[in-house]
Write a protein that binds this DNA or RNA. Sequence first.
DNA 1: TCAGTTAGTTTATATAATAAACAAACTATA
DNA 2: TATAGTTTGTTTATTATATAAACTAACTGA
Lengths: 395, 395
Amino acid sequence: MDLKKTSTRNSNTILVISNIMNGYQMSRAKISELTGLNKATISEIVRNLIEDQYVVEIGAGESSSAGGRKPIYLEINKKAGISFSIDLRSDQISSLATYLNGEVIEKYTEHCKISKENVIERLVNHVQEFNTKYTAKPFGMIGIAISIHGVVDENQISFTPYFDIDEIDLVKELEDRLNIPVYIENEANLSALAEAAYDHEHTHLISFSVHTGIGAGIILDRQLFRGFKGRSGEIGHTILYPDGIQCACGNKGCFEQYGSFTSLIRRFQTLKKDDQCTFDDLIEAVEQEDAETTLLIDHFAKDLSIGLMNIMGTYDPEVIYVNSEIFDKLPNILSIIEKHLDRSIYKSIQLSKSKLGSQSSLYGATVLNLKNFLSLDEVKFDIGYTSTAAVRSNK
Amino acid sequence: MDLKKTSTRNSNTILVISNIMNGYQMSRAKISELTGLNKATISEIVRNLIEDQYVVEIGAGESSSAGGRKPIYLEINKKAGISFSIDLRSDQISSLATYLNGEVIEKYTEHCKISKENVIERLVNHVQEFNTKYTAKPFGMIGIAISIHGVVDENQISFTPYFDIDEIDLVKELEDRLNIPVYIENEANLSALAEAAYDHEHTHLISFSVHTGIGAGIILDRQLFRGFKGRSGEIGHTILYPDGIQCACGNKGCFEQYGSFTSLIRRFQTLKKDDQCTFDDLIEAVEQEDAETTLLIDHFAKDLSIGLMNIMGTYDPEVIYVNSEIFDKLPNILSIIEKHLDRSIYKSIQLSKSKLGSQSSLYGATVLNLKNFLSLDEVKFDIGYTSTAAVRSNK
DNA sequence: TCAGTTAGTTTATATAATAAACAAACTATA
DNA sequence: TATAGTTTGTTTATTATATAAACTAACTGA
């Protein structure tokens, strides 16, 4: 069965897979009702899907209160294939292997300086080491999805600010070595895909990440919005203060110069007149209720809140998930931001801390992998799959 | 034939209509090639469309250089129905009637103060007066699309800042009186639809309008993006200068306070210390190369350019169409803006003056009408249809 | 004049959906 | 504990819709 081919039967087959993947306790009858397709049609499609090992029957459910035959619940045949995801940073590689339902098999992190010279070898090693331990029938490893800290367009890296891997053709070289489809995507975009996969309520959401720079992944109508050249999330370089601090991008007053993790540390160092101060020093100062540090945090939160209001005003989302180590270690900063947000126009827009944190782009890569393999335009994950896994690290 | 019903044949029929509407010199053979559907299938669908008077044969084209039978060109049966569009402002009603291909039949403008008390009667009069002069068979008036200067969601007005028509159920009252489908949409969104209809090149574009306030209509992947509650274009209330000028919305430093037509006049009045100064006075000062006015224009253009860069950074469009009387009467302001734009990151994004000007939302309303009637997800108009029309006005 | 080409139609066939009848497996209750 | 009612899922006959192949129509160009 080739899920890519376009025919009536194929698109209906994908529809059925999508329902089984993303729904809860799906039976043939329920799928027929949800899709509007005839019970007989669903029966035949499901028979083929079971024959091809995409789907399994997991036993009977309960009859409804009015009685009647028990439904046979269907699920994706999770062990039929494995998704392999990689978060590629300038100083570390993290990987995540999952079954087809997103259930985690293994996580692994390796700390090492990455460059165009060693990246292929390192990634190939990661994959091959995993393959010696796990295999899946009949599909094997369905794809490798890589989170890139940089601008990506049409499965190609256009720019990476922190390392030189934009100078090689990562996808082609990996595919040649491994003979498995390789997909790459921007880190913030993948984080957004992940938030959407775990958020079954909202259709318009934004994943707002504050690290070295500022990025945003945009989900509109449950679909990732990438912009014309994949640069939609580059809001770090929108201008917050006209004629403000000079930015490396050439402009002055970029949001990134006021709201990023880097800028927060710089502010603190300036305040303390000591450029050796670290984030831990900042946290300590906050915990000791140092007055000038508290004020600094308030100013920082205000700048973030202005940036967030601008995002709300342009995209009109339902919810914004903020993702940053700052929020993990200074949890009450969120309420300071809320205080600064003028909620009158944006009453209905919710601001939440990301539940996935630094792992979000890895989970997003898994979403991308599964979307591509099963031709889905949406993937929903069960809450809980994230935690049930062996975690290893070389650190 | 019910184009709304979902079936294989229906979606293929819509596909054929879409090709005939939006393509150039379409024949059965060409449609078959473009859609991938079999020639026989296209023949049958076209036969039905001709029978139901949606489509007409307009004669034979030329054979290809290699010879062969001449193709029979197909076109939408433009005179089968009439689209009626209305631009509803606080002080005037403009209307535009077109055939199904967007060709203009009549334009009409009436200047009058509009309120919830008189709006229904005025609009009904407009439509009925038109109907005494023109009819179309077999579909008649296919719909009435109204451009609203305010926030619209789910075919309902949520807020109009300049008049009180948000206090009545405009759509329901009109439909009850006229028995014709009524569609409403935000003015900036409709402008964007219009720009997209005349721009056959770009897939991601923004219509940026500067009038009393500032608005933007967003087209992503040739589709209108409305946000979760239809407020995506409300960028006038993003913050340009933190802690800047107080805005009516409650926040400080909104873009609207620096880049709108209103704010330009206010700046000029402050400069000349005379709150009676008009836009014409400003133009005169510019023409006389008044130094302080030239500087004012430069500052104004700079603020607009910052706002535009922020839009570029968030949406990553291919082209932005600016729409404002300011640009009509001060044509070189565009080059001043271009000068201020830091083009390094946004090299590929084009900035153009709207070709439709103040009429754009009317044409956009026509697009909406036709999209709804023919179940299309895209409408392309021929350049040139805008001008060939009788224009009347009561002024 | 006729071979080659392209457009569009006809006909037979294949694909895929549906409706209706049915079997299987249950609940509730008289 | 029989039985009426309900729901799930399958089977069968039928309908809807697309396609391939052969055809006609109408052209070009040598």
